[in-house]
């Protein structure tokens, strides 16, 4: 069990009478990079948010590194969403400083500098975040989420409205995790399948709240992966 980074056991989530997830079982090991695919409304974001500890399952158990993500030490989680989760009125460096403090990042100053260099925002450090373009904001958001070197990365539509450079930044980062000793575990929810093809090593597809496919992915073309996802997510107009 201790090697399981992320666990969902018999997880169901209801919003009123509507069931977003039905009896989902998922077991992610340390270092796995998972693509969570499916049609709109299949339950991908819901499941991700359960893992993030932002919500509780209606039934079942969710474990993150062996503990309940709600109310536990969430130090180990990095979350990237299509929303920036940044304060528009703060400058780039102020945003990172704020989150560095909140997460208790050691030697914050150096870490922030390193992050800014990595996402190529160093020359904009004193720019108000609200004035950044969508793509730049997303890059900053990525920096924010890995500031504290999390062991678990959750990405919800990270590629949304990103230019190719931005997409490459993220995929390059994820690939670079390969050589790292304590490789983080990651779950990517994405509609854009192709960029993830040579990054992930497992794919899970949700269909109307249930898992319709769960298998390893040992590399392959983006087109293949897209076809696979299309087949198993089988949108309503099947």
């Amino acid at each position: 069990m201790s090697s399981s980074a992320v666990v969902a056991q018999g997880v169901s989530k209801r919003f009123g009478a509507a069931a977003a997830l039905r009896n989902v079982d998922l077991n992610l090991n340390n270092g796995e990079l998972l693509l969570l695919a499916g049609a709109n409304g299949a339950g991908k974001t819901t499941l991700l948010r359960l893992f993030a500890g932002l919500s509780r399952p209606s039934q079942g158990t969710v474990l993150l590194a062996g503990t309940n993500p709600v109310g536990s030490d969430r130090r180990g989680v990095g979350f990237v969403s299509h929303q920036s989760l940044l304060y528009d009125e703060l400058t780039v460096v102020e945003n990172l400083t704020f989150f560095a403090r909140l997460y208790g990042v050691p030697r914050a100053h150096e870490r922030i500098d390193a992050m800014l260099e990595w996402v190529e925002l160093g020359d904009r450090r004193h720019q108000r975040t609200g004035t950044l373009s969508r793509g730049l904001k997303q890059r900053l958001s990525l920096a924010r989420s890995v500031l504290h070197e999390p062991s678990i990365l959750l990405l919800d539509e990270p590629f949304a409205s990103l230019d190719r450079r931005g997409i490459r930044l993220i995929t390059r980062y994820l690939k670079s995790l390969d050589g790292v000793r304590t490789k983080p575990t990651a779950i990517i929810v994405s509609h854009e399948i192709e960029p993830t093809a040579d990054v992930i090593n497992r794919v899970v597809i949700l269909r109307r709240g249930r898992i319709s496919l769960d298998r390893a992915w040992n590399g392959g073309s983006g087109v293949e992966l897209q076809k696979l996802c299309d087949h198993f997510s089988e949108a309503e107009t099947g």
Binding site: L54, R74, V77, F79, S81, S84, L85, L86, L102
Partner: peptide, 14 residues
Amino acid sequence: RQNETLDALLLAPI
């Protein structure tokens, strides 16, 4: 609620 920063605060280990 702007940019969902509330989520960011809830995600943080506080």
